[in-house]
């Protein structure tokens, strides 16, 4: 079977975890790659990072945070249900995860920990000393702690409100590590604003930093250019040139604004969807 959900759980409030049968994708995917899914014939195509995969079983796992109509609809699917469409693996594999750099700090914010996990695991397998810092707004939203612990030599947790781990942002913890240790590489995945501040910090310390970008996409194959980002003054497509880029080269301010282009439409779609749910039909 293709596209069938075999397992589903709620990792944290509003964060869903899915395991889906997709044998050709499971056979070819590498850390750093993503898929595009579509829930129904009138749906929109949204990118989701492949958080894990099992080549033998022919499955991939994805983690989705409920923000708009599509991710809310996705959360209503149950094991046995099928996705209307799933295509991938898209993007370039994160090749830096196969190399030995020395000490690598993996920084994950919120649901960004999901795509970070396969990269941290690969970095560990490549013989690096992996220090992971994962952060969230509050204790409930810290995800994949055990998985991350298993592939990290050191793990730090931060929450904005101090309900779990250290109070503060991932950047506070990162700064401490950068002061105490010689770090060879930083990998940061999370909200754009988090990646921006991580990069500001690592630039000061002169440590190379990879980020994984998740801009608006349509086809995911380089056809439309919706996902274009400015990297080192050049226009790059996150879908085919990325999604991983040298964070010190990325124009994060432009990216943050570009992500907001359809905010009004996204809200309208969500409001109408909620109305449908309340009304129990059209």
């Amino acid at each position: 079977m293709y596209n069938r959900i075999v397992e589903k759980k709620e990792l944290a409030p509003n964060i869903d975890w899915f395991k889906v049968e997709a044998p050709p994708i499971a056979r070819h995917c590498q850390p750093g790659q993503f898929v595009i899914i579509l829930l129904h014939e009138k749906g929109e195509r949204i990118p989701l990072t492949i958080a894990d995969f099992d080549r033998e079983e022919g499955t991939i796992t994805m983690i989705s945070q409920r923000v708009g109509k599509t991710t809310h609809m996705l959360s209503t699917l149950k094991p046995g249900d099928s996705l209307y469409s799933i295509v991938g693996p898209l993007g370039r594999p994160a090749h830096h995860t196969n190399e030995k750099h020395g000490t690598v700090v993996c920084v994950g914010g919120g649901v960004g920990v999901a795509p970070l996990y396969p990269q941290a695991r690969a970095l560990k397998e490549a013989g690096n000393h992996v220090i992971s810092i994962i952060g969230a707004r509050t204790a409930d939203l810290v995800i994949m702690e055990e998985e991350m612990r298993a592939v990290s030599d050191e793990l730090y947790i931060t929450t904005d409100d101090g309900t779990r781990g250290e109070k503060g942002f991932v950047t506070n913890a990162l700064e401490k590590v950068l002061r105490d240790k010689k770090v060879d590489l930083v990998v940061a995945i999370g909200p754009v604003v988090m990646m921006k501040f991580v990069c500001t910090l690592t630039k000061e310390f002169g440590v190379k930093t990879y980020v994984s970008l998740n801009p608006i996409m349509v086809d995911g194959t380089g056809m439309c250019g919706a996902c274009r980002v400015t990297v080192g003054g050049q226009t790059r497509f996150a879908c085919v040139d990325g999604p991983d880029f040298d964070g010190h080269q990325v124009d994060f301010d432009e990216l943050m604004e570009r992500q907001k282009f359809y905010v009004k439409e996204e809200k309208l779609a969500m409001d109408l969807y909620e109305k449908t749910l309340k009304g129990g039909g059209a």
């Binding site: 749906g43 929109e44 195509r45 349509v218 439309c224 359809y262 439409e265 996204e266 779609a269």
Partner: peptide
């Protein structure tokens, strides 16, 4: 390509009946 793909393939001209927006 993006403009036409949104409108034609994704039927964004029928948003919000279809989920893909176009501006």
């Amino acid at each position: 390509n993006e403009f036409l793909t949104r409108a034609n393939l994704m039927k964004a001209y029928r948003f919000p009946e279809y989920d893909t927006p176009i501006k």
